[in-house]
Write a protein that binds this DNA or RNA. Structure first.
Lengths: 142, 142
DNA sequence: TATAAACTTAGAGTTAACTCTAAGGTCAAC
DNA sequence: GTTGACCTTAGAGTTAACTCTAAGTTTATA
């Protein structure tokens, strides 16, 4: 059984974050000492690692909550439930990717257009572009 | 001279957002009626449009504040100051892009590996992958 | 003139995921 | 037996950029 700092070292999460995840139902200590210290079993560690993996991929804590409930009772859930969550996350990621790619293109174009030198900015083409409003249409996050 | 709702209609910003930007020093109404109503001149409109353009590209309100101060006194600022801000933003965007691309790849790989059908999740390869921790290393936003 | 639409302000609420603080209890080492 | 590291809790603070509310004033319309 690991203490919270040991679980933290193992997972790379901070003890603060582990407690925060516990408050949100993601991680649990299957034992507490008489004095209230959390003690984590092997199964608890696996669960924490699952959370960490899912977090790395970009799943929200809410998503992870659902994934954990599926993991806990696989019989009662279908693969489709899992792929639905995954596909939704992928859609989100793709959406954000195209926003960022549009920004990237605009920024690159602006940088190419400007001398970037010590000259004063009286005729700075970046400032002018922003003034003219003729920047590529980019979408903001929804 | 435009009233706030007219500026809102013109720029696509909400009146709330325009007041919010004013509080943060980005947009100003060069006149107020006796009763306190904001009135925007052509120059105010241009400034608001500058802010909107910069926002669309992804600049933070802080960045925009700096860009506006350059725009207001171009003589005292160099092109380099402008390209520095732009380059920093591009670096940020590129950083986030590679994070998201890593997530995208992982999510796609997971989706390919899973049947996604109505079968129960006992052998779901996505759940297994998360359990195993063998997901692509993705970096979180810093 | 009466009503409704639009305007004003200060300030609180939202979101997500932490991150930190304060005040105190526990434990291991010397 | 005392020091210091580690643990506990509840709850506040952080970040960015809004977004909304309440309570009241002004203006335009019918």
């Amino acid at each position: 059984m690991l203490k919270i700092s040991e679980l933290a070292a193992l997972t790379g999460l901070s003890a603060h974050t582990i407690r925060f995840y516990e408050k949100h139902g993601l991680i649990e200590a299957s034992k507490r000492s008489d004095s209230g210290y959390r003690y984590y079993s092997d199964a608890d560690v696996k669960r924490a690692e699952f959370v960490k993996s899912a977090r790395n991929i970009g799943f929200s804590l809410d998503d992870i909550g659902v994934l954990l409930s599926i993991r806990l009772d696989k019989q009662s859930h279908s693969c489709q439930e899992v792929t639905d969550i995954t596909q939704n996350k992928l859609d989100e990621v793709n959406e954000r990717l195209s926003e960022l790619q549009a920004m990237q293109q605009t920024l690159e174009r602006l940088l190419e257009s400007c001398c970037g030198g010590p000259e004063n900015a009286t005729h700075c083409s970046i400032i002018e572009a922003l003034d003219g409003g003729d920047v590529t249409v980019t979408r903001r996050a929804s």
